[in-house]
Structures are given as C-alpha cells and as structure tokens.
Design a protein around this nucleic acid. Structure first.
Lengths: 233, 233
DNA sequence: TAGTGGTCTAGACCACCCT
DNA sequence: GGGTGGTCTAGACCACTAC
C-alpha cells in the first residue's frame, strides 16, 4: 500500500514523549510492544520502531528483547556537547582568532603523562605549549603531549604556523578518547599567560585520544577566567 | 528476497568511517549517493541510509537533498554527557549519599533570576538551598529557584525529606533546558559549606529548564574542590 | 526540473533472553 | 519455547534544493 495517510515517526515520537512526561506511562511501567502500537497508530511496525529508538537513545525508555520496553526509572538528562576546533570556537563568538606558540620540543615525558597513555616511562614525546587569543585577549592555554611514534609526520610540522589543535584534527584520526572537565586555580606562570589574577578560577578540559589501541595525544586546555561552556538539553 | 547474505548497517558504518578517517574520502569531498553505495555493498538503500544517518548524527558528514553528501570540513567532537540524579551520582562512586536542607522559603526572586526565566520582576518563587554529601563529606551545594506558578504541588513538599533535585526529576516534566559549565572561586559562606579553603576553585553547573514555554526552575550546583566531570568520546 | 536524501510500507528472518 | 526488539529488503512517494 502506498502511504495514502502515512503517520510520521516524529508524530509518534511526540505522542509517546507526551505519555511519558505526563505520567500516563509512569516510570517503570511496561510500554505496549511495537506491533500493538503500530496497530494503534495504524502504521508499520518499522515506523513505531523508529520513534522508540529515539526515545531509547535519549535514555527515556529501556528496551530488552523478550522483556519488552519500560519507561526508565531514573530519567537522566543526556547532554550533547559539540567541541569544535578552538579557532572556530573563537570565531563563533565573533572574535578574531590568533595564536602564539610558546614551546615546541622533544623531551622525555613526565611519568604522569606516560602512565595515562599506557606508554613506557621515559618515552620521548613532542611537547607543545601555546596560547589562543580572541581579539588579542588570551582565550586559553593549550598544553599538549603528542606520541610521535604514532605520528611520525608530526616531527616536521611548524606549529607556529598552525595550532596543534587544528593540525591534529585534520591529520590525526582517532577512534576514542577521554574528556574531563574541572576547575582549577591559576598559578603564577599560567595566570600571567592568561592575563588573569593570581588564584583566579580556571575552567580546565583534559583530553586524551587514541586511535584504536594507539595513544595519540594528551592535552590540557586552561580557559581564561569567565569562560562558560554552554549547551542545550 | 530474504537476507541470504545481508550486509549489516554496522559493517557499512565501519567501512565508511574507515574511508573518512583514512582520508580516502578527504574533508569536503563528495560521497557517492545512497543508491550507488547500496549497489557497491550489494544491499538495500535503506541499509546504507541507516549507516549514513549515524555518521551524520556524529557530525562527520553533511547531507543535503539534491546536493548530496560531503565529508565534514571541520570534524567536531560530539560528546555525550549523562547527568544523573545527584544521589545516584554519589552512589555510583560507591559513596553513601546524604543530604541537608539549608533553606526553604517563598520570597521575591532577585531580578537576575526572573530575567533569565522570562518572569516578571518581583515574582515570588520558592528558594531552596541544600548540601549533598558523599560519605559525610560535602559533595555539592545546590541553590535553586522554582516557579511555583507552574508547579503548585511544590509548595507542600517537605524538602528535608527528599532533595529538590530528585523531586523535580520525578514530578516536573520538562521539554528543554540550558546548561552551562564554568569555574568559580569559593567565597566565604560557600567555602565553609563545602569545607573548602577560601578561594578554592569550584566547578559550577548552571541549569535552567522549561516545560514548553513555561519556566520551571533555575539551579546552580557548586561542586566541592577536586570534582571532575568525565566522559568518553 | 531533475536528482538527492528522508520516510513509510509490508513482509521476513534473526538474536536475544525471560519464563 | 516463545515473545520481543533489531534488522534487512524491495519498492514507493515525498521534500527539498541546486542547477
């Protein structure tokens, strides 16, 4: 049959969302199975499945084969953060991005770095420190260690011409990573670099990326005071 | 035809991912259309579509009707944060959760609060301040304003028995919200409440939620020093 | 206007897992 | 064992938009 009066999966999604948020289907209760809902809405089971997959991805329902579908007991907010290249993050604030390289040298990485990457103690890595500016004001400090063994090409790059952040995203694919957000205080050198008061609160992002089992880089981004990472639910 | 040797959308997803990360399809290049890929992989177009939808959701490709599909120029990391109820967050750290109510009173909300919610100046709201503990150590300070007009039932709740965080999640559906993460320093009263040193760096989450166009609540969570919000890419 | 992605259908088989 | 969600197919029409 052609879709003479086809029901959209979005309308079903909204209706199911309504039944959940209005407690028509309270937390923990069993939701009718896909076949029954398809009959109720007069559509194909695939269409119901499409709607329910969205709800499951949002964490609002729990689905198990044979056991059926239940409304989640503890609805969690699932927040999506888009983390762009730093240059774009600055430009999206309608500010002019610029960049200054502070350090670029091969050296034995400290144990705290090698341990987090699962590399041997004493491994030589590329250390890069730099500052990103927004309209000539310090925006963030980037402190990075790169596993040169995984990226031989990186040894020849001039990171005064392109930021490590941008070069890596364009040239070093990765398959997984860890991210941690925290708060820290600006010690002497960092405070000076960020033009911040000594002891100012600094928003910090720590990030490690791997390509398969191969560690690529570990980086700490220290944002100038006042930075807020925003998103919508 | 039955799926005698059906290709799974996951295998196609992985293959397309490989072509993108290994620059076989470089950033900005045009990807073959769904029909061609279906022919190449010997599967239905729907299956290719399923795989490409995942890539589009991850921000790796940009899709437009008629214009076709291109590899994204600036691959962004899309990070998913799961924000649970505070009690569960503590318990997931294998710590015992407890809770202390500091304030619960109706009062005229400050203009900074009403402005953010789009309410009239001088609106009376329910103000709640509390501390959440992990193993009897301060974990976070919750400072919250609730729009009582939207939730009449909230006026009768005893928030010394249940945290506002948990009551709202279980009783106040919302459809959208803003979240902001930032760093702040602990001033005198907050430092004392969190058992932190004066001037310690505090990880702060500001959150506003709406149900449709109706503002529900605005809350500031101030975490004790050392807190890290972690996730994986 | 023509080509592309987006969606829906009806049917089928499979994988999982509770009972 | 049997019911449930997960997936795939082949086909169709629609919506959007670059050309």
């Amino acid at each position: 049959m052609i879709d003479a009066e086809a029901i959209s999966w979005r309308s079903i999604h909204l209706e199911l969302l309504r039944r959940i948020t209005e407690r028509e289907w309270p937390p923990g209760s069993v939701v009718p199975n896909e076949a029954d809902l398809a009959a109720e809405f007069g559509c194909a089971r695939t269409t119901v499945h499409r709607a329910m997959r969205e709800l499951a991805a949002a964490g609002l329902i729990d689905r198990k084969r044979k056991a059926g579908t239940r409304v989640a007991l503890h609805p969690i907010s699932r927040v999506v953060l888009d983390i762009p290249i730093i240059r774009l993050e600055v430009e999206q604030r309608n500010a002019e991005w610029s960049y200054g390289l502070l350090k670029q040298d091969m050296r034995v990485a400290p144990p705290s770095i090698t341990a987090r990457l699962g590399l041997e103690r004493g491994t030589r890595m590329l250390h890069i420190a730099s500052i990103h500016f927004a309209d000539n004001h310090p925006f963030l400090h980037e402190d990075r260690w790169i596993n040169v063994d995984a990226l031989p090409a990186v040894a020849k790059v001039d990171f005064s011409a392109i930021s490590a952040n941008e070069w890596l995203i364009q040239n070093a694919p990765y398959t997984s990573g860890d991210i941690a957000f925290s708060a820290s205080t600006a010690d002497g050198p960092l405070a000076e670099l960020l033009a911040a008061a000594e002891g100012a609160a600094i928003f910090v992002v720590d990030r490690i990326t791997w390509n398969g089992a191969v560690p690529i880089t570990v980086v700490r981004l220290s944002y100038a005071p006042g930075y807020r990472l925003k998103t919508r639910i």
